[in-house]
């Protein structure tokens, strides 16, 4: 018991000393929120008091931090958790949710880019090869989202909720099947194009205590799939990290940790492309999105450092449960909005 406590304490202090910028950032955020709480000049409205407003901001930051840690360890984007829950369980405008969802999806990936590149878990050639098609898809997806929203209004939102609900089932399946069996996939045959692209690499696997070598295969179908995955990310505002990890791991045969790290970097690139469409349209309300961004940055750093030393199977189970609950609610709300009916469940 004492040993465990000491080990936890030393791991905490090693994180503080090895990533001092994280400690400084957390101190700045805490200081900022205290100033916002004690010196606030925000006026109340008929539905929100000044205290409510402060609690929404601080609560959003804390929830966002937790989502980021779970998401990075599970190898998915935080948007896959945030967007379905918000679209399913709140009445906030769907474009505001999707724009904020991109922030949530993107910033944990962006901030974990540095540690993943330094640890060599993310392979720069894989990132660049898949990054080109994914950015094309992302920009088209974001433009399609705003056009559909403007053209179809509430019915359009219903279609988004219903299709996202069904997508969640597939993501949960990807997470469910992406476990131990494919942790270190060994392709039987490397196709000529993948060999020519030299999509190979190696990394130090802490849990095995040895170097793991790998070579990605099926570069052509994988590349085509990334256009579609970029479109999904830009359209739904959720990053689609689970699909990216699944495609890299199950289709292109990357080790699961490499797939998770590359997907984090890739979803940051695709969402960084898509989010500009939402920003210039005005769908990103900064005051609302800011605590979600800060939470993703803090949680993203913590998650990236934890990922290097732990196995992700438990986190996957938690994420599958969250996704399945969200998907039921999304499908029900989608049907309600499309057909204008009321389903009295939940």
């Amino acid at each position: 018991m004492e040993k465990k406590k000491l080990k936890r304490k030393s791991r905490f202090w090693s994180l503080v000393t090895s990533v001092p910028e994280l400690s400084i950032l957390i101190l700045l955020i805490v200081g900022g929120y205290l100033v916002m709480g004690f010196a606030s000049k925000v006026q109340g409205t008929e539905i929100l008091s000044p205290t409510d407003i402060w609690l929404i901001i601080v609560g959003s930051f804390l929830i966002s931090t937790a989502i980021a840690i779970l998401a990075v360890i599970g190898g998915i984007g935080g948007g896959v958790i945030f967007t379905p829950i918000m679209l399913g369980f709140t009445s906030l405008d769907s474009l505001v949710i999707r724009a904020t969802g991109l922030v949530v999806a993107m910033f944990s990936g962006l901030i974990s880019t540095g540690p993943f590149m330094r640890s060599k878990l993310a392979n720069i050639k894989v990132v660049i090869y898949c990054g080109f098609p994914i950015t094309v898809g992302a920009i088209l997806g974001s433009v399609a989202a705003i056009r559909l929203h403007n053209a179809l209004g509430l019915v359009g939102d219903g279609i988004v909720r219903l299709s996202l609900g069904m997508l969640m089932i597939i993501i949960a399946y990807f997470l469910f099947t992406g476990g131990g069996k494919t942790e270190y996939p060994e392709p039987k045959h490397i196709d000529a194009f993948s060999a020519k692209m030299r999509l190979n690499g190696s990394y130090w696997e802490e849990s095995l205590g040895k170097v793991v070598n790998y070579h990605l295969v099926r570069a052509v179908p994988g590349g085509i799939m990334f256009i579609f995955l970029g479109f999904i990310a830009g359209f739904f505002g959720l990053g689609g990290g689970a699909f990216l990890t699944g495609t890299l791991n199950l289709v292109m045969m990357a080790p699961v940790k490499v797939a998770a790290a590359c997907s984090g970097v890739l979803l940051a690139i695709s969402n960084a492309t898509a989010i500009w469409t939402y920003i210039t349209y005005g769908a990103l309300i900064a005051v609302f999105a800011a605590p979600w961004m800060l939470g993703q940055v803090v949680g993203g750093i913590l998650g990236a450092h934890l990922l290097i030393s732990i196995r992700a199977s438990f986190v996957r189970k938690v994420l599958i449960a969250i996704l399945l609950i969200s998907c039921i609610k999304l499908v029900l709300r989608g049907i309600e909005e499309i057909f204008g009916i009321d389903i009295p469940i939940i």
């Binding site: 925000v42 006026q43 109340g44 409205t45 008929e46 539905i47 929100l48 000044p50 407003i53 929404i56 709140t90 009445s91 906030l92 405008d93 474009l95 505001v96 349209y281 005005g282 769908a283 309300i285 005051v287 609302f288």
Partner: peptide, 19 residues
């Protein structure tokens, strides 16, 4: 005002209505 941003979002107003 911050209260305007958060209240209108909380009420579920559309992006066009908010702006």
């Amino acid at each position: 005002p911050v209260s305007y941003w958060l209240s209108t979002i909380w009420k579920g107003e559309s992006v066009a209505e908010i702006w």
